[in-house]
Computed example of a mutant assay.
Amino acid sequence: MTVTIASWNINSFRLREETVLRLLREEGPDVLCLQETKSPVDKLPLAAACALGYAHVVARGQPGYNGVAILSRLPLDEAPALDFGLPQDARHVAARLPSGVVVHNLYIPAGGDLPDPVLNPKFRRKLDFLDAVRAAFAEAPRDGAILVGDFNVAPREDDVWDHRKLLRVVTHTPVEVAALEAIRGAGGFVDVTRAHLPTGRLYSWWSYRAADWSAADKGRRLDHIWATPDLAARSGGSRIARAVRGWDRPSDHAPVFAEFEA
């Protein structure tokens, strides 16, 4: 059975409900993982998505910040959420598909503007969070898992618009890239999107500050879909739906898609 999974930082589910519904109608992923829903779970606007067939939901939320949700046309069983030592943050949720595959939806902290863990506590917290994620997945099973989300790190030189200029910009600093690679290695994950699109510039985020985001094209690939090797070998493709960034009232992120025989 082919299962299509999408991951998208929506930057407020309630504010962009119509955008989410448009994606569900036009793209119809089997599973949609949202980050930065910015809402308690009981206030998420789920009724219209349910009417479109997305009746299965696993979510964590809090007022105004963070928040992760998995909406599915397939039945879901909630899997244990990982707090990474930060139980007050709704940054991870997990669900088991009927096949037994566990989907992890993760939102890693942005880290502020200054890439200095001494002068910028947000950056220190991001590095600590990345290390906690590494430790958690080092203990996790090495098969049957898909990890998606807004990782807030663009790891490769061609995942940013200018590698040299961004080496001292949060999301592309060497220490963040190394920390993200440590997570990938600890969990034995394959970067599914880059497995299918191994060369060329590839972005999933463009700043709201650009007068014309598409023409400037100063993007970064912050959103990822990874899988354990058993599932990566059964992946039929991956893509970033860049055009969605140009929809009305958009998120600054575009959704990432991947297909699996799962």
Score class of each variant (00 low, 15 high):
198 P>I: 13
182 A>R: 04
186 A>V: 13
101 V>I: 12
190 V>Y: 04
106 L>F: 07
189 F>S: 11
165 K>P: 00
131 D>E: 13
104 H>F: 03
132 A>G: 02
114 L>C: 01
168 R>N: 13
133 V>L: 10
181 E>R: 13
152 N>L: 04
165 K>G: 13
106 L>S: 08
147 L>D: 01
188 G>E: 04
133 V>D: 06
174 P>N: 08
137 F>S: 01
127 L>T: 05
168 R>W: 05
144 G>C: 12
139 E>H: 10
181 E>H: 10
149 G>Q: 10
126 K>Q: 07
97 L>D: 10
157 E>P: 02
169 V>G: 09
187 G>Y: 11
195 A>I: 00
109 P>T: 06
111 G>Q: 12
99 S>F: 01
152 N>K: 03
152 N>S: 05
134 R>H: 09
118 V>A: 08
148 V>M: 02
191 D>F: 05
168 R>D: 12
176 E>Q: 15
142 R>H: 07
145 A>V: 07
99 S>T: 12
145 A>N: 09
194 R>S: 02
134 R>I: 12
131 D>P: 00
124 R>E: 14
105 N>D: 15
182 A>E: 03
130 L>P: 04
128 D>L: 10
119 L>G: 13
161 W>N: 08
127 L>G: 06
151 F>W: 15
190 V>I: 14
108 I>R: 03
152 N>I: 00
178 A>C: 06
164 R>I: 05
178 A>F: 09
160 V>P: 00
187 G>V: 06
181 E>P: 00
185 G>E: 11
117 P>I: 06
99 S>M: 08
183 I>Y: 03
113 D>P: 02
110 A>T: 05
192 V>K: 02
163 H>Y: 14
189 F>E: 09
192 V>L: 02
187 G>C: 11
192 V>E: 04
183 I>E: 04
145 A>I: 07
154 A>F: 07
95 A>Y: 01
118 V>M: 06
177 V>S: 00
190 V>F: 05
131 D>I: 03
169 V>R: 14
114 L>W: 00
143 D>G: 09
181 E>A: 09
127 L>M: 15
173 T>N: 07
144 G>P: 01
144 G>M: 11
99 S>I: 07
123 F>A: 03
99 S>A: 11
164 R>V: 07
149 G>R: 07
163 H>S: 14
137 F>T: 04
159 D>N: 09
176 E>N: 14
161 W>V: 07
148 V>L: 05
122 K>V: 12
136 A>V: 06
140 A>V: 04
197 L>K: 12
164 R>Q: 13
105 N>L: 13
149 G>K: 11
166 L>T: 13
162 D>V: 13
150 D>V: 09
139 E>A: 15
191 D>G: 05
